[in-house]
Amino acid sequence: MKKLIVFVLILVSGTSFAQNEAKRINLYNLENKLGIQGYDPLGYFNLGKAVKGKKEISVSYQGVVYNFSSVENKNTFLKNPAKYEPQYGGWCAYAMGDSGEKVEINPETFKITDGKLYLFYNAYFNNTLKSWNKDESNLKTKADNNWKKIYNNQKP
């Protein structure tokens, strides 16, 4: 009986994990499952700049592939992936706060606030990081709520 219960628990948790993975792949800003356009998530934190990762040093975390510029960065990420993933699935933080829309980003336009990585659209003379900085607290609250609605309303 114990074995049956353990088997059912494993089956249920595996199904839940697969659904969560599918949800993330559908919702996140990815190209062929690649997050942050191949940039190293730890570069933002450790170096304070956007650094391209290497395909050979990558990891898949809940369906999202991240590239790293070093094995050390990859190993650090694996210890606490949620800490280093960009907010709002890697979509533009400003757009998420302003209108609740999923807008592409420029991975070289970013900000770390309270230990979290925020990415922004920056093209055609429109750097949304500047707009974000003018009303960060309000936009962050709205972005958090908008992303929660988007994430919770998406079927896996």
Rank of each mutant, 00 (worst) to 15 (best):
P86K: 04
I57N: 06
A50L: 11
G53Y: 02
I5G: 04
L30W: 05
W132L: 12
G97K: 03
V64M: 03
N126K: 14
C92G: 11
D144N: 15
K140D: 10
I112L: 10
P86D: 12
I105F: 05
T141P: 03
L117R: 02
G14M: 01
Y39V: 04
N153F: 00
Y124V: 10
P107W: 02
Y66I: 03
K102T: 09
D98V: 06
S70M: 06
P41M: 11
F120A: 04
K155D: 11
Y66F: 15
K2Q: 13
G89Q: 05
V8T: 11
K111P: 00
T141H: 09
G115M: 03
Y121E: 05
Y151H: 12
L47V: 08
N145G: 13
G97S: 09
K116L: 07
S16L: 13
F77W: 01
G35V: 06
V103D: 02
S99T: 15
I105T: 05
K52V: 10
K2S: 11
S137Y: 00
S137L: 13
E72K: 14
Y84G: 06
N152S: 14
P81V: 04
V51F: 05
K148L: 14
Q19Y: 03
L78G: 11
K148G: 03
L117Y: 04
E104I: 02
N106S: 15
G90R: 00
E108Q: 12
I105R: 00
A22I: 01
N73A: 08
P107K: 04
Y66M: 04
L4H: 04
G53I: 09
N127V: 09
K79L: 11
Y61Q: 10
Q37E: 15
A22V: 02
K2T: 12
I57A: 13
L27F: 02
S13I: 11
K74L: 15
Y94C: 01
N32A: 15
G38A: 12
L42K: 03
Y66N: 08
N46D: 15
K79N: 12
A93L: 00
F68V: 10
K3P: 00
T141N: 09
N127F: 08
N126Q: 14
G14D: 04
Y44H: 04
K2P: 03
N106Y: 02
G48I: 10
T113E: 15
L27W: 01
A123V: 05
N126C: 07
N29G: 11
K49R: 14
A95I: 03
K54D: 08
K140L: 09
L11E: 03
S60K: 14
N32V: 00
Y66W: 05
F68E: 06
K23D: 11
S58V: 01
